[in-house]
Amino acid sequence: MNIFRLAGDMTHLMSVLVLLLKIHTIKSCAGKSYPCSLCFILLESSSGISLKTQELYALVFATRYLDIFTDFISVYNTIMKLIFLGSSFSIVWYIRRHKIVRRSYDKDQDTFRHFFLVLPCLLLALIINEKFTFKEVLWTFSLYLEAVAILPQLILLQRTRNIDNLTGQYVFLLGAYRALYILNWIYRYFTEPHYVHWITWISGLVQTLLYADFFYYYFSSLKNNVKLKLPA
């Protein structure tokens, strides 16, 4: 474990916590008898969260952590895997099933057919992988899928008029975690002999590059102290 990877994991955890906080805000908001101003805004405007991206992430974790009970790495590793699995599936459940949270989901805007991402990633994983075994192919599939999983969310943000802070921070943290992982891979490449994982590195690089324009608009909105807005 190195500082880059720990920072990456903590940033990833933060992104999940921000999303859970946002869902909690929506839930607690609607419970009120009177619509406070924030509540009114939250309930009226769509939450800006893409269910498609959340479902893709649940699939990413489900296919990546198949070894959670077979290969014990460390307590930290197991706990983090359980957190990511638990949170990703419960977020999907909230947006799909929870009587209040589902109202803030705008399915007319979240129209990305994520099936078109799953199939090519699966085919690619069958062709390009480190070892042609069931677990390894699904693990590679999870890497390719995670690289593109943010697309429905980024497209939804372009369509969302006013992106609220929590959603913007969620996407930023999600992009930042993988950027930190790239530093981790560079560090491990120079400090551990035989540590070479081209598939992981290239997928992680593509994933981070997909956030490039979001990062640009995110930092611009911070610098100019204006609302985050993505060009359509």
């Binding site: 290969d71 590793n77 390894e136 693990w139």
Partner: peptide, 10 residues
């Protein structure tokens, strides 16, 4: 190593 490559990253 003979065992399948164990992925130690999340």
């Amino acid at each position: 190593p003979l065992t399948a490559e164990v992925h130690d990253e999340l």
